[in-house]
Structures are given as C-alpha cells and as structure tokens.
Amino acid sequence: MSGNKETIRLENLVIGYETKTVAEGINASLNSGELTCLIGPNGAGKSTLMRTICAFQKKLGGSIFIEGKELSDYPDKELARKIGVVLTHRPQIQNMSVEELVALGRSPYTGFFGRLTEEDKRIVAEAIDMIGITSLKDRMIQNLSDGERQKVMIAKAIAQQTPLICLDEPTAFLDFPSKIETMQLLKKLCREQGKTIFLSTHDLELTLQIADRIFLMQNGTITSGTPQETAQSGALSSFIEREGIIFDKLQMRVKISR
C-alpha cells in the first residue's frame, strides 16, 4: 500500500507507570489506510501503549508524533479531533438512544451547550449509515447486544471525524461471527475512508488474515511488520510456540501437536 502517509510515529518511546517501566525503545509508525493490530501476551503492555497513545496516561520518555506534532503539544480539544477511541468495556448508560450516543462524537466540534448544527446531524446520520446500524438508531443503548454496542461506539468514533481510531480489544467480548464482522468493518473503513486504525487483540489467526501491519509486543519492546514479515522473522513463533504448540510460518496458522 504505497502512497499512504504516516499518521503516528513513535520514537524511542518509553511507557509505563511512575514506579515501573513497561516497555522501552519503541520505534514504530502507523500509516493512513492501514489496519494495524497490536498483539502480544497478557501483561506485555498492550493497554499501556494504547492508553499512552490516546493521552490517557503520560509517556515516560521518547516522543509520540501525531501528524508531525508532538502529542503533548495538542490542546484537549484539538487532540479530540485527531484520535477517536473505542474501549473494551461497554459504557454503563441508561436511557440514551444510539443516535444520541453517536451524536456525542460531535462534542469536539459543537459549542458550549452541545447543540448540533444541520451539518453535525448529517455527519451523525452518515456515520450511523456507514456502520450499518440505521435500524438501531432509536433503540436504547442498554437494550443492545455487545456486538451492536461495539458498532455504536465505532460509529461514534466515525462521527468524531478523526484520522486515527484506536480500539482497545474491541472484539474481546464478542461472539466469533461478530468478531469477524467487526474486523471486516474496520478494514473497510481503512480502505474506503483512508483512516488509520490501531487495535489491540488476542485473536491471532483472524489478525494475521486481515491486518495490514502487526505490532508484536513482548519482552518490553515492539517488533513491527506485515503479517508475513513478522511470521518469517520467527518473532511470532517465539510468541506462540511452547510445548505442544507449533506456529506454521507458511500457512500462518497455529497448530496443536498431540
């Protein structure tokens, strides 16, 4: 995919908490029009990296450039127009319709009282249509299935009109068909809208089939590349293989040896 421009660049990034460094020496970039998946064992720091890029927590060192400008130099409201997030856990909201929630995605653009202009309303309707949830738009959030609710949150991120969308394990609680459906939807957004999409996941085989780029996070750092590159380099094997589990580099599949 040539012609895609760099949306985010991580340079010598160090992440973690005040008392503990989780990963360091992270050098990687995310490109527009690409679906990048972050994989790695539990505790490797996937969420920490995700939260650091979304500015939910401070980096310990290095730089994060978003469209060429350092993350910490963005004012709150401007950053809200660059990164849209979708989280694992569903928000506990009662009595809010799908349409109202997607409309909250317009908050970085609306005025003091959050009143929607005709333009905002059109963008909200488009986002809902694009995700294919028009039939749900008057339903209350609490009456949706997990898969439907995750689509609503993605529609919110679309309405937010950010070049970058970060999703922290968006498919964790979904049933298998919904996982695939959600991933396909995200892939489509990359291709058709030129979005930069970055998500963390544990669904390895699905990821290898659909991702444009893989970030493998283990042992305190990141290896990045296309699924094929990551497989060939042996990095995936070292992540997956243990007694009784083999990673087939050619077919990119996990096999269980009896």
């Binding site: 500015a55 939910f56 849209g84 997030v85 928000p91 909201i93 809010m96 929630l101 909250l104 609306t110």
Partner: peptide
Amino acid sequence: FLLVKTLNLMLLGDDYARNLGLN
C-alpha cells in the same frame, strides 16, 4: 445550565469523555 455538555460527556465514563476533549 452551563454544565450540561460536561455532564452529558461524563455519562460515557472518564476515558471516552477525555477522548472527546473533556478535561
């Protein structure tokens, strides 16, 4: 009345609210 937008965003939880530009 000056806090209605703030309160609406807070319904989404801290992370979503912060992502939508709320301090």
